[in-house]
Design a protein around this nucleic acid. Structure first.
Lengths: 339, 339
DNA sequence: TACGGTGGTCGAAACGTTTCGCAAACCTAG
DNA sequence: CTAGGTTTGCGAAACGTTTCGACCACCGTA
């Protein structure tokens, strides 16, 4: 491997001058600089990141700390990662994938103690997540994709559930629906404090209230079977529901089956929307479902970018909310006339 | 940050002794060793990976080099990454996510030139992939998830398409089908030399021949629309086809729609299988489709493990093939009686 | 002519490890 | 009691950077 010293020798200058010339750290005479740059190119010089990091205390490596893939861990989460990696790469940073094992805090302590990473990117945030507290206390720069209940001045990029819910409600209200139901994630141990679970529920309720349309959301479903059952219960209690938004793809499958069993059709008898699901998934249904697609890659990019901004210097906290994109499918239509 | 020197001071020994004691590099008296370990614990010492790497030339960091997400980049690819990250983590390694930009080779040159990574993990291999050649010449250790046309002695973990195809053919043949059709990925610029595209096609043909059942595979489809059209053409040319295996999820959507348009039902009139698709995706269809689920996480794990083996010492090349798992759904049944 | 200023360069120290030659202390055997 | 070997520990060098004080030659000015 060719080092700074090799370049210095070839250019007939001191090592420190080469460093200065290549990094623009301090002024170097134009002629010297040219000579050095030429030598560097000739030798195919690449700075050694380890040595640089050791000295400068900055490695330009970010850790993306991701929890063990739950069921349902899918394209969205992948896109956080690829989005973040891309943004990091564009800004000269690298992204380290760091799986959390049984004990997230211990794992964080480990990864940050190695001196390997400049900062940490957190995802899959729970409202009561303990990781931010640990990192704050440890003085490790970090940002979140998602957010805790009270993010304070921590940088984060999250879905704008309020805007998303408003858009969804406007969509169905615009079609003439007067009553909307919402199926949240099933109450698993995890989902109980999972940000999107809580926020989506709250914001759909608020948006419906605001728009003056009736709303039901006491149903939760995580599998096709549960989705079907929840739908039956829903109709038993609220026969006047004509539009339904579902957070869980598999629950939606069950709903569709239940709709068919009943002899109903989508969208004639029910307008169905997929919440937090990608267009690609929505397209796999028949008819193609209307979806509220989360801006996953964008959130990953934002998260990485704001973390890097933070590393580069202080600034006001960056807190960005990005709404989902509503992709209208063939599952949206005005309600049945007779209702 | 507490360093080796701090520990040395507290334990009243030389720095080099601490290093030896903690790494087991050379024998250290039991009493001394205990004292040192205690001091290390007291101080919460964590070795600095940069310094270690700088000196020892081994960083314990692997780069996972992934191409720009194509359309269809999904759960499978995510699982390569998480599987690899997990396996690496278990073995004391870290995984760097390295997006390839426009020029993969240049990107490889860059990432390997930094002295940051010990080896590279390649995925999304094309038959004529140039990356292995570059890495071989550069003397960078690497392994592949997937494989080129002629992998030589390079370590890889890939899907066992032969076994997978045999199992799929046996599945339909066992149900009594005498003629199987196969829809491959659409002929995109990428898929043209994409390993799975080619190998799956070849092996399905071979397996059908071997099992003595008729076979058609000149159809390719990448979207729902194309899938439907391909299905119509298929039936026009081969009305006696009763079983169909489809590689592309979206094409399957089109097929199902076409089946319904024709008044047919699945599985009564057509046995349908999803090739290289996860159980979760198969469950989103109605009826639940039979799927050949790729061992994605396993391949990621294997890829990482064999790369680490290689780094640890020489051994014979490791080349592992893992078959897909056949998950029987409700889309498989004996053929119509009248055929 | 002398003097402070300045643009350009150098050399050495430091970052936190690992590695390796050496020396001190100890033990064993003759 | 000493020669030889073994155990145990030490100190210094090295890895490839960045950083920083010092130096030198040169310039304009008094």
């Amino acid at each position: 491997m060719t080092s700074l010293r090799d370049v210095a020798e070839r250019a007939q200058v001191a090592v420190s001058t080469v460093s200065a010339a290549l990094n623009g750290t301090r002024p170097v005479a134009a002629a010297t600089k040219r000579r050095i740059e030429q030598a560097a190119v000739d030798l195919g010089y690449r700075p050694n990141l380890l040595a640089r990091g050791l000295q400068s205390k900055r490695t330009k490596i970010l850790a993306l700390f991701y929890p063990a893939p739950r069921s349902g861990f899918g394209v969205t989460e992948m896109q956080f990662a690829t989005g973040a990696a891309e943004a990091a790469s564009e800004l000269g940073y690298h992204l380290l994938l760091s799986p959390d094992s049984a004990d997230p805090i211990e794992e964080l302590r480990h990864i940050t103690g190695l001196g390997l990473v400049d900062g940490v990117l957190l995802m899959e945030m729970r409202l009561d997540d303990e990781r931010p507290d640990f990192l704050s206390e440890a003085g490790v720069p970090f940002s979140m994709i998602g957010r805790t209940r009270d993010p304070g001045t921590i940088d984060y990029a999250d879905i704008d559930f309020a805007a998303t819910a408003r858009e969804a409600v406007a969509h169905v209200a615009g079609l003439g629906h007067r009553k909307l139901a919402f199926f949240n994630y099933s109450t698993g141990t995890y989902a109980a404090q999972y940000g999107p679970t809580i926020r989506a529920g709250e914001e759909f309720a608020a948006a419906a209230r605001e728009a003056g349309i009736a709303y039901v959301d006491d149903h939760r479903a995580g599998s096709a079977e549960e989705g079907g059952e929840a739908f039956e219960r829903l109709l038993a209690a609220h026969p006047d529901v004509t539009a339904l938004a579902v957070m869980d793809d598999h629950a939606a499958v069950g709903v569709i089956a239940a709709v068919a069993r009943r002899g109903w059709r989508i969208p004639d008898d029910l307008t169905l929307m997929l919440v937090l699901s990608s267009e690609r998934v929505a397209e796999m249904f028949h008819p193609r479902l209307t979806a509220l697609e989360p801006p996953s890659a964008e959130l990953g990019r934002l998260g990485a970018r704001m973390l890097i901004d933070r590393l580069r210097g202080d600034g006001p906290p960056q807190q960005r909310l990005v709404p989902c994109r509503l992709v209208a499918g063939d599952s949206s239509a005005p309600p049945r006339a007779e209702v």
